[in-house]
Design a protein around this nucleic acid. Structure first.
Lengths: 210, 210, 210, 210
DNA sequence: GATGAATGAGATTTCATTCAT
DNA sequence: AATGAATGAAATCTCATTCAT
């Protein structure tokens, strides 16, 4: 059996194991057995447990980013529509590959090299979102918001999306269809878009005493 | 030395260790040494590593919920002001006790009993937020939103808050003062409040084609 | 049981195991079992296999050097008599502790840290021998030999002694008494002393053509 | 490529690997790669790691013995001159093939089959030396020395030579020329020849009290 | 003749946990 | 109340070795 096929089998098995039991608790024995190969072969192909985990993380990072990018590709749409498509793609992906997402989730608490990888992914997504917000501000004809403010908003949006994804997936286990992804994306747009528009047109929410 | 004091020392040491190294990587040896006691004493007081971790989680859950509750206590304020106060309290707490928060963060990826505890905490906070949103809807004199929709919004808000807290704390390491907590809370209110108001008054964002 | 006693038991067992099977082939399992303790205890006390081996090497180095030094202690004797006593002590020690000597033998082929330790021991013994040769030259009232020449002679003497020890011990397995040590020492003195005396008094062996 | 050439390549690579890392630490993977062939081919030609090591040992044993024999071939010379030539050949060989010598060195601590091979080589060399000593005794017109005594002397000589070779090679790394081999041989002759002559003519060194 | 693919067995090391005192 | 001493169980990783082609 060719090396690439075996390697994918191992990664598949590893993603499942890491997602379910976590990095430490998942044992190389179990992963090898689940992949249908012997342990030494796993080491031959993937060098060490750390490298194996890193390979899983990178694969899932790539898949998630690709999905979101695919969703926001069409440039002729308005900013809010692009954002909505990106969110829909995000929710669809998290619903379709729960184990892959779980690996990324775990990786965030597994120390420097792994957390950095996920952080880089967040930066990438935040950058996409930031670009959309900038375009939206232009479309609204308003001046620029402070960069720091925009960055904070993008982080808030990403966090909200992650939280919603987790909540949505924990509820309707079976209905992982595209319509529910659209619904969830709409919920999030409802949650934030008016506020963002107000900000861009200079009508922010006012803290008491200001 | 009285038992309670010793026990708090152990919990303090354990929180630091678990926050920094994670559940598995933190060793009972290190915790006992950091607490200034012998290992058997840790076992005498706290039974097992799992129980010790659970005790840490519960203590930090309690502290965080108490902080948020304290912030939203005053009932004569308007809903948005209560929400703003609660968020401020949340950001102030996460900035003040990073290790405690990190323990909760870790607990979410440590399997059933621990993840459940944190999930319960989220439910509690979501419930508080949901109540505030309900009150806001009443104040706005609008009809009811679907319960599922409100729940989703609350989850989005909590997720956004968590993400912002992480972002804010990773940036200004030193300026963990109350003013920055207020700023962050204001950013989040800007982000979402207009959208929530629109929803409550029946003017949602419209997905294309609806 | 107190720590020191246990530690000596472990070292004893380790010396036997390393002597008989070599560093790599001796397993920590076997050593622990032979010492009558569990493996983790060996690791608790002696840190790692490398450290355990090093501890064995250092103990045996110390014992051998101490034996030789003890033999050459009396300063009022003539140089040849001191040398003879040192050799006798050396042969007696190698006959009495074959496993200890074997460990040193093994250590020479086990890489940097261990080989260095044995090399340092050889330097120490060579230094003792060199001092004796220097004293002998003084007693003979001759000028000084080149330092490099003396060093070479001392190395030759030590090598000859090692080789003789191995030969003697491989023969009379049972008669490891002090008389055979004296005989072996006498053989070696016969082998080399006249040549050394000639060198010191300026009558070297002549290579053909010189 | 003909089998013999391939086989020599493998042996060359193996000698280097065994010399540098030792029997256990040298891996078949590395040896195969260094020889430029695949691992199964090594097994096809040389059966097993043990057999490969044994082949190395035997080759180097043969080379060393041949060198020494070549040096002592001329029968019309006096015994001391033959001995000096043999020693010169020995020192020249050890300086020219350090890896080969190192393999023999390692083999002595690698258990029965290998140690025996090296021991047999020593016996062979000791036999040559013994014959020379016997001839010298005859030339000196003296009676016979006890066989055991002569054997001991020959062992001492060989040990001294080994030790000197190691010392000489560890010093002048670059000057591995024939003149330094001659110098080292002369040093050793100086060290021992007068004593041997004295022994043969019945004037041994006297231990105190005899 | 030559090899990519694969493995069985065993090595060191770590850790949560418990007695006897 | 508190601990030094000790362990069972399991983890990661390596390596010599063999098929099927």
């Amino acid at each position: 059996m060719p090396r690439e096929v075996r390697e994918r089998q191992m990664l598949d098995a590893a993603v499942v194991a890491f997602a379910r039991h976590g990095y430490q608790a998942a044992s190389m024995d179990d992963i090898a057995e689940a992949a249908g190969v012997s342990k030494p072969l796993v080491y031959l192909y993937l060098k060490s447990k750390e490298d194996l985990f890193m390979a899983c993380v990178r694969r899932e990072v790539g898949a998630l980013v690709a999905a979101v990018r695919e969703g926001t590709r069409e440039r002729e749409l308005t900013a809010d529509q692009q954002l909505w498509r990106g969110l829909t793609a995000f929710f669809a992906h998290t619903a379709a590959r729960p184990d892959g997402v779980a690996v990324l989730y775990r990786a965030r608490t597994q120390g420097e090299p792994f957390a950095r990888e996920v952080a880089a992914m967040r930066v990438e997504i935040v950058t996409i979102v930031t670009a959309l917000l900038g375009q939206a501000a232009q479309d609204a004809g308003c001046g620029e918001l402070a960069e720091r403010e925009v960055s904070g908003l993008a982080h808030a949006l990403v966090g909200a999306a992650e939280s919603l994804a987790e909540w949505a997936n924990s509820r309707s286990c079976a209905s992982a269809d595209s319509s529910s992804a659209k619904d969830t994306a709409a919920t999030l747009m409802n949650f934030c878009w008016a506020g963002l528009e107000n900000l861009m047109t200079g009508r922010p929410w006012m803290a008491p005493g200001h």
